[in-house]
């Protein structure tokens, strides 16, 4: 199956942007990754099994493109992230603290946590999206959670 790309942009652009931002910590690079991801979909003749399959594909492509952008370009305007965060309106003050804590983690933890906590993928599907083992996903989740607990104290519960 295929969906019109305009529908996918409307529905998933913020999710794809967040996934890309989780990799790059740079809103400009994340925007580029979003553009490139939807263009790749548009140019691809690939057929998908379901809309869920399309969503997972878009997230995987965005994550990979973000990694490519980071290594392809000279990183010259990276202070943009701080400006972006300053200009972002969070619902509650603790939301900003949580987001800043997540972005202080290294990329491999940020991406796994985004897919798990925001996109609500189970460990097995995160492993498929990132092409890593389930054990690696679990390990990164555990270390990411511990790091957040260390930073946020009681504002981040000890969960599974």
């Amino acid at each position: 199956m295929r969906r019109p790309v305009e529908e996918l942009v409307e529905k998933y652009r913020d999710s794809v942007f967040r996934a890309a931002l989780s990799v790059s910590r740079n809103p400009e690079d994340a925007e580029d990754a979003v553009q490139d991801t939807f263009i790749q979909y548009m140019n691809s003749k690939r057929q998908f099994e379901s809309e869920e399959h399309i969503r997972a594909w878009l997230l995987r492509v965005a994550i990979n493109k973000s990694k490519n952008i980071m290594t392809s370009f000279w990183n010259r305007n990276r202070v943009a992230f701080e400006d972006y965060m300053e200009n972002t309106q969070f619902q509650e003050p603790e939301d900003r603290s949580l987001a800043e804590a997540v972005f202080s983690l290294t990329e491999k933890y940020r991406v796994v946590m985004y897919l798990y906590y925001y996109e609500e993928y189970p460990v097995r599907e995160i492993a498929e999206i990132l092409h890593i083992s389930e054990g690696t996903v679990k390990s990164r989740l555990a270390r990411g959670r511990k790091a957040l607990r260390d930073i946020l104290k009681e504002a981040w519960d000890i969960d599974e």
Binding site: L21, E31, V102, Y117, Y118
Partner: peptide, 16 residues
Amino acid sequence: TNREKYRRAFSSLRMP
């Protein structure tokens, strides 16, 4: 829950 906290925080992160 942690997931609810995370989702609320990250829902504010949108394309500019």
